[in-house]
Structure formats: structure tokens, C-alpha cells
Simulated assay, not measured.
Amino acid sequence: MKKENSTNSINSQYLLNTCDFNYVLQLISGRWKSQIIFSIAHGNNRFSLIKNDLENISDQVLGRQLKMLEKEGIIEKAEISETIPKGIKYSFTQKADSLIPLLRQLCYWGGQNRLTE
């Protein structure tokens, strides 16, 4: 956990507050966030479906990342009342709808420019 008054923490917060690009990078970076976003984009809108799509992710990490994406306004969750027990489904917000095409472009660029050994 970062110390809030450390130079590193202060500098990170400064960069987030002064550079929109750094905000976007912080939003989509981190372990599994972009993969979770793409999994939902491909129709995996339930915890178990995302978990099956991303085999190596733990339940704890998936739950934490989903909460972070929800807090950032990228996804929202809704109760599915037709199931017993009641389930949760995840969907994109308007904020995410405008982000997805940009992420696809970044993926395309990465595929075109990745160094292979």
C-alpha cells in the first residue's frame, strides 16, 4: 500500500491531475483490467463467464478489479431477478462505450508494432 504523503504518491497524483493521458493509462492499466474490459465486450457479462474466459485470474482479483472498474464508472452491475439465486450481470456505461474503440485501436497498433524474437 502506498503512503499518501510519500514523494512517489504525491508525484503520481500530480501526474493524474495534470495529464489526461495519465488518467486513461491509470484507468486501463493494472493487472487484468483491460482483459476484463475486452471479456465483457465479447459478451461475458457475468462473473463466472469472465472467470472462465480469463483462466488464470483468481476470484479475489477478479472481484477487486470489477469493483475498481465500477468505481471508475466503466462498468455497472445489475441484479438478474429471473435467476435463483439472484445473479449479477455487468454492462458498460456510456463512459466505456466511448473508450472501447480507443482500446481496440491500441490493440491493433500493438499487434502491428510488437517486436518478435
Rank of each mutant, 00 (worst) to 15 (best):
Q26S: 14
L69C: 07
Y108G: 04
E117F: 15
Q26D: 15
K33P: 02
A78V: 12
I57E: 07
K86D: 02
H42A: 14
L25P: 01
Q35W: 12
I75M: 04
E76L: 10
S48Y: 13
I75G: 04
S48P: 00
C19Y: 15
L69Y: 10
G73E: 06
I36W: 07
M1H: 12
I50C: 06
I28M: 00
V61T: 15
L103T: 08
Y108R: 13
Q112E: 15
G87L: 10
G87I: 02
E79P: 00
I74A: 00
D20T: 12
L54M: 05
D53N: 15
L25T: 13
S34P: 00
I84R: 04
L54H: 05
M68V: 07
E70M: 14
Y14Q: 08
L66N: 08
T83L: 05
I100A: 01
E55S: 15
N44S: 13
R46W: 01
E72N: 11
Y23C: 00
Y90F: 15
I40K: 06
N45K: 13
I57W: 13
K71A: 09
K51C: 01
F38N: 10
K71E: 14
N22V: 04
E79M: 06
Q94I: 04
K67T: 11
L54A: 03
W32I: 10
L25S: 11
G73V: 06
S98Q: 09
Y90V: 06
L106D: 02
Q35G: 02
F38A: 05
G87R: 10
N17K: 15
N5Q: 08
E70F: 03
R114M: 08
N22I: 07
N45E: 13
P85M: 03
M68T: 10
E4K: 13
R104Y: 12
C19D: 14
I75A: 03
